[in-house]
Write a protein that binds this DNA or RNA. Structure first.
Lengths: 250, 250
DNA sequence: GTTGACCTTCACGTTACGTTAGGGTGTATG
DNA sequence: CATACACCCTAACGTAACGTGAAGGTCAAC
């Protein structure tokens, strides 16, 4: 049986343009009628097209499909496995983006303004980057890697001295939080000081501070593994301390 | 402070080309030095760039970012939510592809040849399509939609009559399976007949049949919801019947 | 005066096609 | 026999978000 390009298109569900394009790429080469140089496809080409579509639907690029059909690799399962890993990476990245959007929406609902929500995202990305440095690529494989704009800090237009203060305060909070958490009591004086410092720390970057947004933020710390990891397992304690502190000092 | 394009590039981590491109799109319009028409960026542009990057990292297309920054929508969370849905669809599609690859690898390991594995995928896609027709878009939203090549059946180069037989046999299996399953005994005569018919049915399309691949296939039926749904909850029964049948008739 | 680092615009390449534009072919009908 | 209509052909531009030169101007230092 000989099929014209239109018949082939209807049969397979791919457009005529696509069939011509595949010929251009030397992926699928139909014969031609001598008299009018019309293309015609036989069962051989049908089978070939099926193979092409098989790989195409698995998101293989056409160039790869081409080389793949010309010299079929001995180990197809390995090929499939590597394509799978690639797709998984893409998926993980999407998952990460989705989480980020969710959290951004949360911060918005929690009363943060857009500017601060954006800064929050930058801060999160910085955390993720450090997290990856610490825990190697496991984290990168588990989550995806959002492309981090590298010098978020520089773009904060803080001057060097202020940034240094800010950075030091961050470290101080981490240390004092660890000490305070040992007592287990979020209403202790040590814990309340941590909460106060955390408030001060936030005010360095937030254009408008509100207790509501602050509570919302520390709540979120407890939800995301990376934040929890940054606070070395004391995210819940920090949340409780901040809640208590803000309720005391309304 | 005025930054040259290079300084801006280092500061923000985006390439010079990208900065020029954004100017071309009217996304980010730096001023020019009068004497040499060099670009220069001020804090205003830095902030603008930060906004651009915020949305870009969430996979917003640049054109959208452009309109978005020109007339900021009142409800940003809604915007974020719709972007989230879009990303979720992409992710679901990837998940579907990943599952398909896994299953294809399984069929390969189960002793199927490549051609039949490809056909298996086509069959699965047809099932999915029918599944979606039945259960509406819930299924499509939960899983992603693989682009199905519509007329897989036609491309099987079965003639009409043979295809009709094949199709009828498929329906017969479904009915008899339901009846046999009521007894609950996969070694019953009725169940064994179903297994035999299923074998016959597979041989219509498989270029090489093996008991191993057959067992592997029915095992997979029990793992994937859509297959299970096609067999109306009797996938496990079918598996047991086939195993028993093949072990009896070695 | 010349290197070298910076800047400029212009323009092609990337992926997988969709979409005209301009023109030839084959056949059924008036 | 002319014409309408469905089909075929090639060529070429457009898409998104840049990367990568090419060709040439500007500026400070040696």
């Amino acid at each position: 049986m000989n099929y014209s390009i239109k018949e082939m298109s209807v049969l397979s569900g791919v457009s005529e343009r696509t069939l011509r394009y595949y010929e251009e790429l030397e992926l699928l080469k139909p014969q031609r009628k001598a008299e009018n140089s019309y293309r015609f496809y036989t069962t051989k080409e049908i089978q070939r097209l099926q193979q092409i579509l098989f790989y195409r639907e698995l998101d293989f690029p056409l160039a790869k499909i081409c080389t793949l059909l010309e010299n079929p690799p001995s180990d197809i399962t390995q090929l499939l496995a590597s394509q799978k890993r690639l797709l998984e990476e893409k998926r993980n990245r999407l998952n990460e983006l989705i989480m980020t959007i969710e959290q951004t929406i949360e911060t918005q609902k929690g009363g943060m303004n857009m500017k601060d929500s954006q800064y929050f995202k930058g801060f999160k990305n910085k955390l993720i980057e450090e997290n990856e440095k610490t825990y190697g690529k496991e984290a990168r494989e588990k989550y995806g890697s959002e492309s981090v704009d590298k010098s978020n800090a520089k773009m904060l237009h803080m001057d060097e001295a202020t940034y240094h203060e800010f950075d030091q305060l961050g470290k101080e909070i981490l240390e004092k939080l660890a000490t305070a958490a040992e007592t287990g009591n979020p209403t202790s004086e040590a814990a309340q000081e941590v909460a106060k410092l955390h408030q001060k720390w936030l005010k360095y970057t937030w254009t408008s501070y509100s207790a509501e947004a602050h509570k919302n933020l520390v709540e979120m710390y407890t939800q995301d593994e990376r934040f929890a990891s940054y606070y070395q397992g004391n995210a819940v304690f920090l949340r409780d301390a901040v809640h208590s502190y803000l309720d005391q000092n309304k």
